[in-house]
Amino acid sequence: MALLEVNDLKTYFRTDDGIVKAVDGVSFQVEKGQTLGIVGESGCGKSVTCLTIMGLNAKRNTITSGNALFRGEDLLTMNSRRLREIRGDDVAMIFQDPMTSLNPVHTIGRQLTEAVLLHRDVTKSQARARAVELLKAVGIPRADRRIDDYPHQFSGGMRQRVMIAMALVNDPDLLIADEPTTALDVTTQAQILELMNRLQREFGSAIIIITHDLGVVAETADDVVVMYAARIAEQGTVDEIFKRPHHPYTWGLLGSLPRLDTDTERLVQIPGQPPSLLNPPRGCRFHPRCPYVMNVCKQEEPELKQVTGDHDHLQRCWLDEQTKDREAAKLLHASMAEATS
C-alpha cells in the first residue's frame, strides 16, 4: 500500500463568475520515503491539490470529490478530530511564501513548540529543546538564542528554514512542500533544496515538492506529475519524464528549463497563456498553445494512457508514439549537445 494514494481528486470553487475547476481529476501515489514532484505553470492547480489533501481549503465555497488515502484512511472524509491528529504530525506542510506564513506576534520558539505540544505529551521545556534541535538541524546559527526572536527578525531564507524546522519537528511521514524556494534568491534556493535532500535522508520522510521548475524536480524527485490546467498532462518516474517525455507541454517545460551550468541562461517560454479554469478549452486543454495540434485535439480530450514499454509512465496526448519518441530524442540530443559544448 502506498503511503498516500490520491484518486480522481476534484476541487471546484464556487465564485461570483461561476465554478472554477481548480483541480479536475488528479490521481497519483507517493511511496514511503520517496519524493514526488508536481510541476506546472502558475495557476494550474498545484497548490489547491495539496491544500485539498491537507483539508485547508475554505469550506464555504469549495466542492471536493475523489479521495486521498493516507495509509488507507481517506483524508477528505475523515472527521475533523482525526484530521487534526494527522496534520502536523504524520503529514506536514511548508508553504509558498515564508514572509507571511509565520505569525508576526509570536516568537518562532512559541510557534515551534506549539507544533510539538499539539501532538506530543511532553513538557514545555522538552518541546523547546526539540525546537532548538530542529532549528540547529536546518542550519539556524545560534539556534538556542534565535528561538526567542520574532519572524520579522529573520530573512526570507531563514524564515523558510524555520518553516521547514516546524514541519519536521514531529517527524512526519509525509512532507508537502509548496514551492519552498520560489520566493527566495538563487543561492538560497540551492541551499534550501540541499537542506531538504539531506533532511529527507536523515528523517526518511516522503516528500511532495511543488514547483514550476523542472530543474528542482530533477534535483530532488523520484516521480513526477506534470499538471496543465487542473489536469495531469503526463506523469512517470524522473527517468521516464526526462529521457522520454511524451507530451508537448512537457517538451515546452523542458525547453524553458534555465540551465545554471551554461553562462547564457536560456529561457524559452511556452507561447500563449494558460487557459481560464472557469471554462477550459474543448478537447485537449493544451491544444490552443500546442505546435503539433491536429483536428482531433480540438474535438476530443485524450485519455491518460500508458506509454508502451514504460512501467509507470502515463501521458495525455493524441500524437502517435513514433512522433513523440522522435521529438523526445531530438530534445534530449539538443540538451546533451548544449551541456557538452
Binding site: 506564513s101 509565520l102 505569525n103
Partner: peptide, 10 residues
C-alpha cells in the same frame, strides 16, 4: 497565511 500554517500544524 499564518492562520493556515496554524491549521496545518493540527
Amino acid at each position: 497565511d499564518y492562520v493556515r500554517t496554524a491549521r496545518a500544524k493540527g
